[in-house]
């Protein structure tokens, strides 16, 4: 079973994507920390989450003391990252990624680079929306170029040219 955990920075744009349910092609369950759920404001995003929870595609993740302790340590370690660190909400996702093997879904730059720079987090797999779309394309579910274009139009998200070049899209 492939499980992921998502933070707010990923959900706020992904939830606006008309093909957002493609996420279930990659993950059996996406966990949502309670602290993430508390930050959601838009009715559309909340409706999608409620539907996900009701259909058991999503699951509420309650931050336990040991996860929060580990997350605080990650926040502290992340001060060594170039350019930016990690805040507690993203650190909770990274801690859950490390502890339970969940893929971390985030757009937070600090969280994305953390496994590359912090040895302790090297087993954690982090994916941004572009990585998710790329994985869906590799699995044959979508055409990457069309979906990247659709995602940017529908969500207002902008992918860096540097990343698009890496995928042969620029």
């Amino acid at each position: 079973m492939t499980e992921a955990i998502a933070d707010t920075s990923f959900l706020i744009d992904w939830a606006r994507y008309s093909r957002r349910d493609l996420l279930w092609r990659l993950f059996d369950v996406v966990h949502l920390p309670e602290s993430v759920l508390a930050e959601i404001y838009s009715e559309g995003t909340l409706a999608w989450i409620v539907d996900g929870l009701a259909s058991r595609r999503m699951a509420l993740f309650t931050e336990t003391e040991d996860v929060v302790d580990l997350a605080r340590r990650i926040v502290s370690l992340s001060r060594a990252l170039p350019a930016r660190g990690v805040d507690l909400p993203e650190a909770v996702c990274l801690a859950a990624g490390l502890k339970f093997g969940y893929v971390v879904l985030t757009e937070n730059g600090g969280a994305v680079m953390a496994p590359s720079f912090l040895n302790e987090l090297s087993p954690v797999k982090v994916m941004r929306a572009l990585d998710v779309l790329h994985a869906l394309a590799q699995a044959g579910h979508i055409g990457l170029r069309e979906e990247v274009a659709r995602y940017q139009v529908e969500t207002g998200h902008r992918f860096a040219k540097r990343d698009l070049r890496r995928l042969g899209l620029e």
């Binding site: 707010t8 920075s9 706020i12 508390a38 930050e39 404001y41 909400p89 937070n108 969500t155």
Partner: peptide
């Protein structure tokens, strides 16, 4: 580019700050 801290500066939930970000046409990258 850190929406969590930005929302705290604004005194808003992340989702609420995201609505303001969209009005200000600042893209998430």
């Amino acid at each position: 580019g850190d929406i969590y801290v930005a929302s705290r500066i604004a005194g808003m939930k992340v989702g609420e700050f995201d609505e303001l970000r969209r009005k200000a046409k600042v893209p998430m990258v």
